[in-house]
Amino acid sequence: MAYSVHSSHGHQTADLTIRLLQATAHRIAAAEMWYRRAQSRRIIAALSPEQMKDIGYPAVDAIPSLDVEAGLMSRLQSMR
């Protein structure tokens, strides 16, 4: 009966370490993206309407909206 000189335990430990490092790097990158997005939103929220127009950010009235009459939702809910 022959025994292997090399153990697979070291290989499994290395794989786990690599996966842990990759998962950690992924979470750090996601947190950085979230922080940058939040920072951009704070900056945009602090701009005046004139500054927003200067940078070409869509005006509030340019955002599509839908006007619904007062009792429509109640009427639609009762149709179920």
Rank of each mutant, 00 (worst) to 15 (best):
G56L: 02
I63T: 12
Q39R: 12
R42Y: 10
S48L: 07
P58Q: 08
M73K: 03
R36K: 15
A31H: 03
R37N: 14
D15I: 03
R75Y: 05
A46W: 09
S40T: 12
Q51F: 03
Y3A: 04
H26I: 02
Q39S: 13
A14K: 02
H11K: 08
V68G: 04
L47H: 13
R75L: 01
M79R: 07
D54N: 07
V5Y: 04
P49K: 06
E32K: 09
R75C: 02
A45K: 15
R42A: 15
Q39M: 14
I55P: 08
A2W: 02
Y57F: 01
A59Q: 11
Y57Q: 00
M79E: 01
H26R: 15
R41Q: 15
A59H: 06
S7R: 01
R27M: 05
R75P: 00
R80V: 07
M1W: 04
W34T: 14
S40D: 14
Q12P: 00
Q77T: 08
V5A: 14
E50W: 02
V5L: 10
A62V: 06
A25D: 15
M52Q: 05
L72K: 02
L21D: 01
T13A: 08
A14L: 11
G56R: 05
T17A: 08
H11V: 06
L47W: 13
E32Q: 10
G71Y: 00
H9G: 07
G71S: 10
Y35K: 15
I43C: 04
G56V: 03
H11W: 05
A29V: 11
T17I: 01
T13P: 02
D61Y: 02
H9K: 00
V5P: 06
A25S: 15
E32D: 14
R19Y: 08
R36P: 08
V60T: 00
G10Q: 07
S7G: 04
T17G: 04
E32F: 04
D15A: 08
I44Q: 10
R41Y: 13
A23R: 09
A62T: 02
Y3P: 04
G71P: 07
E32C: 12
R80C: 11
W34A: 14
H26N: 14
A38V: 13
P58E: 00
A31E: 08
M52T: 01
H26G: 10
H6N: 06
Y3L: 10
S8E: 09
I63W: 09
L66N: 13
L72C: 01
S48F: 00
A70E: 07
A23E: 06
R80K: 10
R37M: 10
R37K: 14
M33V: 14
P58L: 00
L76F: 04
R80G: 09
P49E: 07
D61C: 11
W34I: 12
H6M: 00
